[in-house]
């Protein structure tokens, strides 16, 4: 089992429910491939730095998970076929140092996401100020 992180950008033209179902779909693919989901980070709707498929915005989601190596090719194949996903990237964390850092990131994300449910707007405001710094 390796440690992975996948970031994907969903088309902004979808409704909120459709976006949620897309995220669920990616999660279910990971589960079907014997992967274990550790955390998900919703970066929300962001402006893209450059146009992708004539879209200027995108809904960013990052999933952190452990999975066997052959799960990635299947996941990427499915993401590639999915027309609602503009862009995706998988990063593998392999050596000890990286995995330690990975665990830190997962902890930070799972902490913030648990508080996000109650005070979603407040956390978004802090995120905005963080990016502004």
């Amino acid at each position: 089992m390796n440690h992975y992180e996948t970031l994907f950008i969903i088309k902004p033209t979808l409704t909120e429910e459709e976006i949620k179902s897309q995220v669920e779909r990616v999660k279910s693919i990971i589960a079907n491939q014997n992967g274990e989901l550790l955390a998900t980070q919703d970066m929300g709707m962001r402006k893209l730095a450059y146009e992708i498929d004539k879209q200027n915005r995108g809904y960013y989601t990052v999933v952190y998970y452990t999975a066997p190596a052959d799960a990635i090719s299947e996941l990427e194949r499915q993401l590639r076929y999915n027309e609602e996903i503009l862009r995706f990237m998988t990063v593998k964390y392999s050596n000890k140092k990286e995995i330690a850092q990975y665990k830190k990131m997962v902890d930070a994300v799972s902490k913030s996401s648990s508080s996000e449910d109650t005070t979603k707007k407040a956390s978004e405001a802090t995120e905005a100020s963080e990016s502004a710094e």
């Binding site: 970031l7 730095a49 450059y50 992708i52 960013y60 862009r87 990237m89 990063v91």
Partner: peptide, 11 residues
Amino acid sequence: KKARQTALIPY
């Protein structure tokens, strides 16, 4: 370079 690929930063 990773941030550029994911459209967080322009090329």
